[in-house]
């Protein structure tokens, strides 16, 4: 009961300082300010984008890159993480390379990816997938490594096929770890998506943000920033909720 109340109450109450800040900004802000235009001007700022039918496609392109990138990263991280975690020798052979790739800053991939793939959505995807894969791969590797041997012997002694062992035992047992990784990877993937868009101006919300900044449309910049913020908040909320509820079910704790 208490947990339910906390879960329902926190986002709303926790947002109060932000709302208060916006109200103060609105009251004392100068509508003509080139740096800090008050919130009421932000809607006017993004109005030209809505009129030109550019805002929704931009949100769509960003969301597509983000969702697709995260999905590929999840599949890749879960599969590679499981394989690496299952065998000590594979782990020892691959770990140094994995550690190096993990330490590679995501932004430094942009020039290489752009060089090879050009300014395209595929290029955006490649840059998003690589850094988003690590948290999922690493949590999955640890989870696979620490899986109880009894849990793996059980389907064998009951005569389950390899396919059923994977789908009925391994997948549900590792799902909480994968989702924990996704929970860490999701905000990261969104940040990288926007970053690539701002840097390369291919398409999406980030490209619009970059263009508005270059054109000194400060109200539009703040308006787009708000949309990006809401997007990030929504993503975080959905992923966290999904992770908590699925983990509870799979781990069997109330």
């Amino acid at each position: 009961m208490k947990a339910k109340k906390e879960r329902g109450g926190t986002p709303i109450r926790g947002l109060l300082p932000l709302v208060a800040l916006l109200v103060i900004w609105e009251l004392v802000g100068d509508p003509a300010s080139p740096y800090f235009p008050p919130p009421s001007t932000w809607i006017d700022g993004i109005q030209p984008l809505i009129d030109a039918d550019k805002l929704l496609p931009a949100i769509g392109q960003t969301s597509l890159t983000f969702v697709l990138g995260l999905a590929i990263a999840t599949a890749l991280g879960a599969i590679v993480g499981t394989l690496v975690g299952a065998s000590r020798s594979v782990d020892r052979a691959l770990s140094p390379s994995l550690e190096f790739l993990r330490a590679l800053p995501a932004a430094s991939l942009v020039p290489v990816a752009a060089l090879v793939l050009g300014y395209t959505t595929q290029m955006k995807l490649v840059v998003v997938v690589l850094p988003a894969t690590w948290p999922i791969l690493l949590t999955c590797r640890t989870a696979r490594r620490t899986l109880s041997p009894v849990l793996l012997d059980t389907p064998r002694t009951l005569g389950l096929s390899t396919w059923h062992r994977t789908t009925k035992i391994l997948t549900p047992a590792l799902t909480p770890a994968v989702l924990l990784g996704v929970r860490v990877a999701a905000p990261l993937a969104l940040i990288i998506t926007l970053l690539v868009e701002i840097v390369t101006r291919v398409n999406g919300l980030g490209a619009a943000l970059g263009a508005a900044q270059a054109g000194f449309l400060s109200a539009q910049v703040y308006g787009l920033l708000t949309i990006a913020g809401i997007l990030g908040f929504a993503v975080n909320w959905i992923v966290t909720r999904a992770e908590t509820s699925v983990s509870r079910r799979m781990r069997g704790t109330v």
């Binding site: 109880s148 012997d153 009925k168 549900p172 799979m250």
Partner: peptide
């Protein structure tokens, strides 16, 4: 012996 890890909690 380890029934807790042998049963599937889900």
């Amino acid at each position: 012996q380890d029934y807790a890890h042998s049963l599937l909690p889900w």
